[in-house]
Computed example of a mutant assay.
Amino acid sequence: MTRTASCACGALKAEVTGEPIRVAICHCHACRTRTGSAFSWNARFAAESVTMTGDSRSYTRIGDEGSEITYHFCPHCGVTVWYENSAVLGIAIPVGAFAPGDLPPPTVSVYDDRKPDWFALADPDIDIWD
């Protein structure tokens, strides 16, 4: 299976083949800031299964665990299309960048202890990482 993730204006794309290694949500402050939401929803793919096209800009920050996280975003519309974490293999892509969004549901909730009090996970089998 091939899927294409894109920024809002379509100038930056990531085409992936195969299924994700992992689909997760994250409740850390940086992910909430990046998405403007209560959490981020991301799919991680093997690096060799991702092909990027278009001009991107990047921003690197140090994560809560000390790793470098580099976001790649469109210089025209500002949407992050993929990111890399120096501590984790693969390329992560925000699920919202895919249309129509036919990815599997998340199996991991990262920084679950930071999620808003009003947010409850419905899946009892999701792996919780505090």
Score class of each variant (00 low, 15 high):
79 V>E: 11
129 W>C: 06
7 C>W: 08
1 M>K: 10
10 G>F: 05
79 V>K: 07
67 S>P: 01
88 V>S: 03
118 W>R: 12
4 T>K: 13
43 A>V: 04
55 D>R: 13
15 E>H: 04
5 A>C: 07
25 I>Q: 12
36 G>L: 06
80 T>N: 13
128 I>C: 03
32 R>Q: 13
39 F>S: 05
56 S>R: 09
112 D>Y: 14
13 K>Q: 15
125 D>E: 15
60 T>N: 05
126 I>Y: 05
49 S>Y: 02
13 K>L: 08
104 P>E: 03
20 P>D: 05
20 P>V: 03
22 R>F: 01
126 I>F: 06
50 V>M: 03
19 E>A: 14
50 V>C: 00
58 S>Y: 04
127 D>Q: 13
127 D>H: 13
6 S>P: 02
62 I>T: 15
69 I>L: 14
102 D>C: 08
17 T>V: 08
110 V>H: 12
3 R>G: 01
105 P>E: 15
106 P>H: 14
58 S>D: 14
33 T>A: 09
72 H>L: 03
122 A>P: 05
72 H>G: 02
59 Y>I: 00
37 S>M: 10
77 C>P: 12
46 A>W: 01
27 H>N: 09
3 R>C: 03
105 P>A: 15
122 A>I: 07
121 L>Y: 12
63 G>Y: 02
52 M>H: 09
113 D>M: 02
6 S>N: 07
41 W>C: 08
40 S>W: 04
130 D>M: 02
61 R>S: 08
100 P>W: 10
91 I>N: 00
120 A>K: 15
18 G>P: 01
98 F>V: 12
92 A>R: 00
24 A>I: 00
72 H>M: 08
93 I>C: 02
117 D>M: 07
16 V>M: 05
17 T>F: 03
116 P>Y: 09
60 T>D: 04
116 P>S: 11
79 V>P: 01
65 E>N: 14
69 I>T: 10
56 S>E: 07
105 P>I: 08
105 P>C: 03
128 I>V: 12
60 T>H: 04
90 G>L: 10
114 R>D: 14
90 G>V: 04
89 L>F: 07
81 V>Q: 06
96 G>K: 03
54 G>H: 08
121 L>M: 13
45 F>T: 04
34 R>W: 03
65 E>Q: 11
71 Y>D: 14
33 T>V: 09
118 W>F: 15
48 E>T: 06
